[in-house]
Design a protein around this nucleic acid. Structure first.
Length: 658
DNA sequence: GCAAGGTC
């Protein structure tokens, strides 16, 4: 009898495409008991020695199989003092809804010679691989465990991976298992402590969960931080000079090189010198080619940011719709950090599929007839998934409204990536008037190229500048002093929040939207459209607290954010902390810990140490012990100064004077 | 009733 090899992927879609490639399409499909998504695919494949020709069962899990939990006696909230959760015993359990999946692996491992793990080649994937291994060992203690190394599911790449298995990377497994343990201990300890302590203040705090998480708190911190920057903003007056000149019926405005000054008297003096000079002289005349770069291949973070800017959906909604499109086979896997396409990928074949579309089909054809350019390469690569791209054509009629808009965006972005940059010509005229220098810019768009298919970005020719010649002198028609006042930043928008999270390593591409949703659900923040009234997520009053302070929407109305230019109506949502959200962050800031829980630094540090574990320069034990020690210290200090936290709640939530 | 991370 042929030897048997069990292969396990991280998700059903990967199991299916790997099975298709390895079997050449010749495989049998079996459902398993207890789970409708998981299938076992059976076929033969000739592996490299020592395995040779084998019968293969290819199946999958659905993400993590197990969770870490406190032992039974610590699970009830009042079972122990929260501080004990830093060292209470924990155990790993198969999730209830994953039991059937784990059993399938245990059963299939029983007669297999080897287990090939086909989870994503990232840290979490490595840990999921270890979870799979554990289930396999239950059925077969001597099964040999290997790991396939692959970053996409192209046929040749998959077959190469099957022929060249490596071992699981225990360091990555350890880094993730440490992360899991720390998230559980810190989250549970602080959540129980906060909730139970602040509950004693009564009122609106009596029966709600006031959760702490190493991602949700920094996320809240960003919102509160911006809120105070808006509130504490003091406008400043500034003055500037502009020079105007009319020629060939065109009114040209020359802007001041110094931009603006905050001292009126100085501006008046400089202005008077200009007036005295009377004559302006052209000192620089420059015409040069310019271009607007086509976008990079699409990552999850970009999809979420641009989704809230152009499509006016919140990040959670965009991800939900993208997942649906992925599950229906229209777009590639939507959770990726990679912003460059593999050299070997056949992009033209994907473009061909779009030729039939009424709106962008013609453009797709023009790419295939010579317009095609290999996409730019960004610097990110998660080694697990390609950038988000359309994999099949679907007529817009068979999609729902939101699906249509997300699909259209993914397709247009993809076609734009495969296009030439937009080309133009920029003109600069610089004049000297007295000792001051002024300039005017002109832009002539020559070839729109990718912009033809990517209406989300704008680039338009300016009014053409009239002809000037170098060194010529002329008397400007008019010169003025202008006056203005600096305007406050706007409240944080969702794309800005996602950028901050991304830059600070808060959450992953797949979870950022969830953290944002979580702080809304906890009523730490609410969202409102720019210039409109408040809107909360779920039920309840977003401005928690009796007599809580209501905030005016401020003057930030139209400023500071991205003025979206795409399709889709409505206006951008902005994030405003509730009184509770402000109280929590201000409370922790006030306790004077060297690193506040409301700042991103602690999470960043965790991320750095995980990388050290993966590099082999730090052990799992050292990492866990150090971090537990660090947070225990923060916890004890917080307990000692809990009055600061309570005072912040009284002040902000209940509006009491200190 | 707590977290964050996978994925459906």
């Amino acid at each position: 009898m042929a030897r048997k090899i069990l292969c396990v992927a991280e998700k059903p879609s990967i199991a299916k495409s790997v099975a298709q490639h390895l079997s050449g399409g010749q495989f049998n499909t079996h459902s398993i008991r207890g789970n409708t998504f998981i299938k076992n695919y059976e076929f033969d494949f000739n592996f490299n020695p020592p395995w040779g020709q084998c019968s293969v069962t290819m199946t999958s899990v659905i993400g993590h199989l197990t969770s870490l939990e406190f032992n039974e006696q610590y699970r009830k909230w009042h079972s122990c003092s929260p501080v004990r959760l830093f060292d209470a015993p924990v155990e790993t359990e198969v999730d209830k809804d994953k039991k059937a999946i784990a059993d399938n692996i245990t059963a299939q491992a029983r007669y297999a010679k080897a287990l090939f793990i086909w989870t994503d080649c990232d840290r979490e994937g490595e840990h999921i691989g270890a979870e799979v291994r554990q289930s396999a060992y239950k059925g077969n203690g001597t099964i040999e465990v290997k790991r396939a190394q692959f970053s996409n599911t192209e046929r040749a790449h998959v077959i190469r991976a099957a022929h060249n298995p490596i071992n699981l990377d225990e360091r990555q497994v350890n880094a993730v298992s440490a992360r899991i343990e720390l998230d559980l201990r810190l989250g549970a300890a602080f959540t129980r402590f906060q909730t139970l302590t602040l509950r004693t203040l009564g009122g609106d705090l009596e029966d709600r969960v006031i959760s702490y998480g190493s991602c949700q708190f920094p996320t809240l911190g960003f919102v509160v931080d911006r809120y105070f920057r808006v509130k504490q903003f003091v406008p400043e007056n500034f003055w500037s000079i502009k020079v105007m000149h009319k020629r060939d019926d065109v009114e040209v405005t020359f802007s001041w090189r110094r931009h603006r000054l905050f001292d009126r008297a100085s501006v008046v003096i400089l202005f008077e010198r200009c007036l005295t000079a009377r004559i302006a002289k052209v000192i620089k005349l420059q015409k040069k080619p310019t271009s607007k770069w086509r976008p990079l291949p699409l990552t999850t973070v970009e999809l979420q940011k641009l989704g809230s800017m152009f499509l006016r959906m919140d990040s959670q909604r965009v991800m939900k719709v993208a997942e649906d499109l992925y599950n229906k086979g229209w777009i590639s896997y939507p959770r990726t950090e990679t912003d460059s396409f593999d050299k070997g990928m056949d992009l033209k074949k994907l473009i061909e599929k779009q030729e039939q579309d009424q709106a962008w089909g013609g453009y797709a054809t023009s790419l295939l007839r010579g317009g095609f350019r290999q996409p730019r390469s960004g610097r990110h690569n998660d080694q697990a998934h390609p950038p988000i791209h359309p994999v099949n054509f679907v007529a817009s009629g068979s999609l729902s409204g939101d699906e249509r808009r997300v699909y259209e965006f993914v397709v247009r972005r993809f076609l734009a990536c495969c296009s030439e940059d937009a080309k133009g010509e920029s003109t600069t005229v610089e004049i000297e008037c007295g000792d001051e220098i002024f300039f005017a810019n002109g832009l002539l768009v020559l070839e729109r190229n990718y912009l033809e298919v990517y209406p989300y970005e704008k680039w338009n020719s300016s009014q053409p500048l009239p002809r000037f010649s170098l060194h010529e002198t002329f008397e400007p028609t008019e010169a003025n002093i202008t006056e203005g006042e600096t305007s406050p930043p706007g409240y944080l928008t969702e794309p800005e929040l996602i950028s901050l999270m991304d830059a600070n390593g808060i959450g992953t591409d797949a979870t950022m939207a969830e953290h944002i949703a979580k702080i809304k659900e906890r009523e730490y923040v609410m969202t409102q459209p720019r210039g409109g009234g408040a809107q909360t997520n779920g039920n309840g009053n977003g401005n928690s607290g009796r007599g809580g302070r209501r905030e005016r929407s401020g003057r930030g109305g139209a400023q500071g954010g991205n003025n979206a230019t795409g399709s889709g109506g409505g206006s951008v949502q902005q994030f405003i902390p509730t009184t509770l959200g402000v109280a929590l962050i201000e409370g922790y800031n006030g306790i004077g810990l060297e690193t506040s829980l409301g700042k991103p630094f602690l999470r960043k540090e965790m991320e750095i140490k995980m990388k050290q574990i993966c590099a082999g320069t730090k052990s799992r034990n050292d990492f866990v012990n150090e971090t537990i020690e660090q947070y225990t210290e923060l916890f004890v200090r917080t307990q000692q100064q809990v009055d600061v936290l309570k005072a912040a709640c009284r002040k902000y939530v209940f509006g009491e004077q200190p």
